[in-house]
Amino acid sequence: MEFNLSAGAFAAEQKFMPLDGKTVYDVMILGGGPAGLTAAVYCMRKGVSTAMIVKRVGGQVAETSGIENYMGYRYINGMELAEKFREQVLQFGIAYEEGPGVRSVEQGAVKKIALDDGRTFSARTIIVATGKSWRKLDVPGEDEFLGKGVAYCATCDAPFFAGKDVIVAGGGNSGVEAAIDLAKIARKVILVQFLDNLTADRVLVDGLGRFGNVEILLGHEIKAITGDSAVRAVSAADRKTGVRREIAADGIFIEIGLVPNTSPFRGVVDLNDAGEILIDCACKTSAPGIFAAGDVTSVPFKQIIIAGGEGAKAALSACEYLLRDAAR
């Protein structure tokens, strides 16, 4: 039996403090993935007063089973790496809180950060490192059947589809990985891909090809998810002919990539066409004193090691800004 223990979460020597609504922090870091946590270490070492609001430690890293391209570790499990990052942050007396979501941010010499739970905090600079979350299909039935056949996490929910017919939406890496997980236990897996080819890595596509119970439907767009108390069918249209077909299924796993978590920052910082926060090579956004790092930004290639490096850069830029600000 495996135990995915987050040892760091329980460390006795944690020094972090609760966030204080009356303090004006030098830096407020939003997000606790590799970018945010690296930024925190840099800020604390620089000696600026730092606060950090984290929705989920590790972000996408914590959901990844195995990581083989983060230097220093030939192989490490995602949860373990995330915990190591966090441990390195919590040795400092940083103001730290886990759980709450950010509602909005107000620009100014002192910036205001409003949380979903109604509290407000202030800081001279902000580092946005809120990452990305699952992209939705945006079709009828998707919200209605969430948890009743509509799923986004194959490792979490695959066991409920043993012996059943299930659809996977998406032919990228996450879609093909989900299809492989499901093919091991489901009766039948139908992978529906929008494009005319699978875009997943070759090793994954080859892996999927070894299963006899997988059907692949290319060039189709999912239009609706229907059912009664649970999902019963999915309607998909051929993108060339427009012909629609009903595919009977007990569930659908939606694995069509990610969207940046930028809703609290709309109208405050400029975004690109993909909805990512536009930054320059020093992690500056269009708003003075607001910096951004990691997957939420326009920087190409979403990788742990890149996000970490960007977090360091954003922290150093923020510290530089504070120095200049103080000199003025």
């Binding site: 495996e2 989920r56 959901e63 490792t155 979490c156 066991p159």
Partner: peptide
């Protein structure tokens, strides 16, 4: 819960 679900413990 399921034991492979990282969102479940919270």
């Amino acid at each position: 819960i399921s034991l492979t679900c990282p969102y479940c413990p919270p």
